[in-house]
Each structure stands twice: as C-alpha cells, then as structure tokens.
Design a protein around this nucleic acid. Structure first.
Length: 325
DNA sequence: AACGGGGCCAACCGCACGAAA
DNA sequence: GTTTCGTGCGGTTGGCCCCGT
C-alpha cells in the first residue's frame, strides 16, 4: 500500500526553506499558479519535491494566511469543532479563515490540549476526566472545568456555537436511538410513547423499527415525517435524553452545562431559525420539508457527507452501512 | 557562562483516496 | 479492473529558542 515518498530522489533539498526559495516559489505561483505540484519545482527552479513546495505554500506562504495569536473566539471555535469532529484538522481549519490545519493542529497540541487537561477535561472526549479517582483532590479541576464550560457555552459571539450544539444534539440523539435499537429488549428500547417531546416521537420514525435503517438511509425522507417540531423538540433538551441515567448510555457529546447556559444556547438557535423562517416562510404556502427546515438542513449538511454519516452510524451499529434489506 | 529540559512550530512522512490512463 | 498519478490529510519529528539551575 501507499507510494514511495516523492522526495526519495536523491539531491532534493529538505529542511527549512530559505528566503530565496520562498521568493522563487511565490513568484512562480503568482505568475503561473501552482498547476501540478510535482512539476512545479523544476519550472520554478527549486531543488525541492512538489510536496514540499505545496506544504510550504499552503502552510506558510499563501497570502491569505493569518498570522499571530489565536483569539479567544478562535480558541472556542476550535474546541467546539474538535468536540464534534475530533482530529479533523482540515475541517476545523475550514471554519477558521486564514488558519491552516497544521497551525491548528500545533496549537491544539501545545496549548488547548494542555489547558483542557489542567482543567480536568479530557481533550478527547471533552468531558470531565474520569481518571480522577479521588473526587476531593479533583475538586478544583472539576470546578474549573465547570467554569470553563460555562465560559464556552455563554460566549455567544459566534454562530458556530449554535450550529455545533445543534449538530451534537442531533447526532447524539441518533446514536442513542440506534443504540437502543441495537440493544433492544422491549423494555430497554427507546420509550417513544412516554416522551412526546422527543424529536423522533413526532413521527413513525421509530415505529418502523425493524426498518429504521431505511429511514436513516434517506434522512430527508425519514425526517420528512416530522412536522414543524424540530425547534421545539430541540429546545426541550431533557426530553431528548429520556434514559440519561442508564449506565450504558452514551455520554452527552456536549459536556453538561448549566440549565441557564442551555437555555441561552437554545435562544440563539431559536433566533436564528425564526430569523430564517421570517425570511422564507409564507404561512399560506404549501411548505416543503427543505424550505421549512432549511436552517437545520444547513446545519446537518455542513459536514454531513454520506461518509460522515456512514462513519457515525457504523461506529454505533453492528450493521454495516448502508442498511439495505 | 554552560548546560539541560521543555515548549513550540515548520516541515516531513506515510497512508488514503479520487481521477485519469 | 488495474495501475499510476496527484493531492489531501493526520501523525510525527527535528531543530530552534527560552528558561531555570
């Protein structure tokens, strides 16, 4: 598998770039664009491999690169996105204009990770660390973690918060449903009849449980059973997690925060959704799913390629994706 | 002043994947 | 269907710099 490194050819320079090399690369790309990276070094008169040129350009020389310290907002965005996406540095970088994946990765490993650990937060799960067996000893960290969570959830300056929370909650709900679907004994299954405020209880979504896979395979179709409830459903978060105390439940993807914080987050989301529906909705018109739920579609679609959902669902279920027949 | 340890970050490495041949 | 190419991506490394002793 894999290919031999493109720099194996002897004689190609490695290591730090000189200002002269930078100059050559910049000039060449300005004049001709990068074209084929492999061919570029020769054309530009550089004794480097194409890959090295590409990295130098994308991580350092590109004119739109933002230099300098990360702002508090950027910190927060990175943390939020990391809690959702994990080490998908390029995806995270996509939400931070001017920042490169490499830069964010380095920043995470050298600053944020450490900060979270100091606060008693597991940087992988984004939950308070469970290796603190001595609760009393861990108290200061836990308190710091709680404060940090509040800090994160209360800072409303960026729209990403609402988006992230919405995604997290939706994914979490799906995972819970799927988990319950997998574990099913009738008594342990998701109790849709007792939770009217659950998004999934609004439809036949779960009632076709043997065929739940079909619904998931075509999310638009399955969600189209839901009437105009998603906002309300999400705004009543506790209802989404009726089995919160079960030992084997997946922990919430977003660390627990105060009710006030949740409410604030939901208010932001409500505002956004309402703002959008003000712009688009016509009460008398026959609304389609995509029109009425566009904000949610946008939110979900953002990272939600087929493979994205596939990954999530395959991690959750034993059944391979797509679930056919 | 010399040394060692740790932090930081640019750059490298190797795998994965899609497109083209 | 297979191979090759080009590129993207995440993990790791190497070397510089700072700070404490």
């Amino acid at each position: 598998m894999g290919r031999s490194p493109c720099c194996d050819e002897s004689g190609l320079k490695k290591g730090p770039w000189t200002p002269e090399e930078d100059h050559k690369l910049i000039n060449h790309i300005r004049k001709h664009g990068h074209g084929s990276w492999r061919a570029l070094p020769k054309q530009a008169g550089l004794n480097r491999c194409g890959k090295s040129c590409r990295l130098r350009w994308t991580n350092y020389l590109r004119p739109d690169i933002k230099r300098g310290n990360f702002t508090a907002e950027e910190d927060q965005t990175i943390i939020n996105l990391h809690s959702l996406l994990g080490n998908k540095w390029s995806s995270i970088a996509g939400h931070l204009p001017g920042r490169t994946d490499n830069e964010i990765k380095n920043y995470w490993n050298t600053h944020i990770r450490k900060k979270l650990l100091q606060m008693g937060i597991d940087p992988v799960t984004h939950r308070p660390r469970t290796d603190h067996l001595n609760v009393l000893a861990a108290l200061p960290q836990l308190l710091a973690a709680a404060n940090f969570n509040n800090l994160l959830t209360l800072n409303q300056n960026i729209q990403l918060d609402a988006t992230s929370v919405a995604k997290a909650q939706l994914l979490h709900s799906m995972i819970q449903v799927l988990n319950n679907n997998n574990n099913t004994t009738p008594s342990s299954s998701f109790n849709i009849h007792h939770t009217n405020n659950n998004i999934f209880s609004q439809s036949s979504f779960l009632e076709k449980r043997p065929n739940i896979s079909e619904n998931l395979y075509d999310p638009a179709q399955s969600l189209s059973h839901i009437d105009h409830q998603p906002l309300d459903s999400f705004s009543r978060l506790p209802g989404l997690f009726p089995h919160q105390n079960d030992q084997d439940m997946i922990p919430p993807m977003i660390s627990a925060s105060s009710d006030e914080s949740k409410q604030t987050q939901m208010m932001i989301k409500n505002k956004e959704i309402l703002k959008h529906s003000d712009q688009t909705s016509n009460p008398s018109s026959t609304s389609t799913f995509t029109q009425d739920h566009q904000p949610w579609c946008d939110i979900i679609d953002d990272e939600a390629s087929d493979s994205f959902w596939k990954e999530i669902i395959e991690q959750t279920c034993s059944e391979p994706w797509p679930f056919r027949e």
